[in-house]
């Protein structure tokens, strides 16, 4: 199979274990994301359909490709 030579298949064991250093900026950004998410979760309860069970049960979509 000559085609095989044309491409390097990355080996799984080669994948370097990257040490993710938590820089000050990185953790700040992480904190902000978390705060945003908390705010969003507060909002979800207001946005979510009133009766989740009934809403999910009633969502039926037939005749699709």
């Amino acid at each position: 199979m000559p085609e095989r030579e044309q491409i390097r298949r990355p080996k799984r064991e080669e994948a370097p274990e990257e040490v993710i250093e938590e820089t000050a900026a990185g953790s700040e950004q992480g904190e902000k994301l978390k705060a945003d998410l908390d705010e969003l979760l507060d909002e979800i309860d207001l946005v979510l359909e009133d009766n989740a069970e009934e809403f999910v049960r009633g969502y039926v979509q037939k005749g699709g490709q």
């Binding site: 969003l40 979800i44 946005v47 979510l48 359909e49």
Partner: peptide, 26 residues
């Protein structure tokens, strides 16, 4: 298996701005 999670899954895709979850995720 809580219905609220299934509801959120559907509502992620709702195109109404007042209901869409995707629109709230930045």
């Amino acid at each position: 298996d809580d219905a609220r999670l299934a509801a959120m899954d559907l509502q992620y895709h709702d195109l109404r701005p007042e209901r869409s979850l995707a629109a709230r995720l930045g």
